[in-house]
């Protein structure tokens, strides 16, 4: 996927100006301090907003996405959330195994509203990984995770990056280093 001369303004405020970059296999890390347009670029790549100028060439047809907020349905349980996003095509055995790996297998019918912040984050990652996609976009995926769960998620992202491109949005250089990611600085 190639980003060519991308610009985006909100009113008189310029958020992105003439940005060009290439996102290939493995993990690519979008790094910048807070408020410098990382999430806006991600929204442009996901097709949720249109750029004022510039193009995105060869975008993935389908993304598996982990948003900055968890964006889970609070009244539903973990499996129901996965089924909502993925539909009847959800690989049940793979979902059970992934939930077990992320330490979410014992929650049963518990509604998401009763999950901790870290549990919601892990479930959002599971949803992004399980959804049929050509690429993964992860916006600050390690927020609220303890060291042990961060390691588990890092390993899962490494494995996924071996199959498809992963775009990681973060302000933390340690995340990029841990994944050996190519870096795009805004």
């Amino acid at each position: 996927m190639r980003i060519e001369h991308l610009s985006k303004n909100y009113g008189t405020e310029t958020v992105l100006s003439d940005l060009s970059a290439e996102i290939g296999c493995g993990v690519t890390c979008l790094m910048a301090p807070s408020g410098s347009g990382k999430t806006t670029l991600l929204r442009l790549l996901l097709g949720l907003e249109r750029p004022d100028s510039g193009t995105i060439a060869d975008p993935p047809r389908r993304w598996g996405v982990m948003f900055q907020e968890d964006r889970l349905l609070e009244d539903l349980n973990a499996t129901e959330n996965l089924r909502f996003a993925i539909g009847p095509g959800l690989d049940k055995a793979r979902a059970v195994s992934l939930l077990e790996r992320l330490g979410l297998d014992k929650e049963g019918e518990k509604a998401i509203r009763d999950y901790s912040g870290g549990m919601k984050r892990r479930l959002a990652l599971a949803r992004a990984v399980l959804a049929p996609s050509d690429a993964l976009a992860l916006d600050e995926p390690f927020t609220g995770l303890d060291e042990e769960n961060r390691e588990i998620c890092l390993q899962l992202i490494r494995e996924t990056a071996a199959e498809k491109p992963v775009l990681l949005v973060t302000h933390d250089g340690d995340d990029a280093a841990a994944l050996g990611a190519a870096i795009i600085k805004l």
Partner: peptide, 9 residues
């Protein structure tokens, strides 16, 4: 935000 999530998925 949930509608956007549904759209992306």
């Amino acid at each position: 935000k949930l509608l956007e999530m549904a759209r992306v998925f």
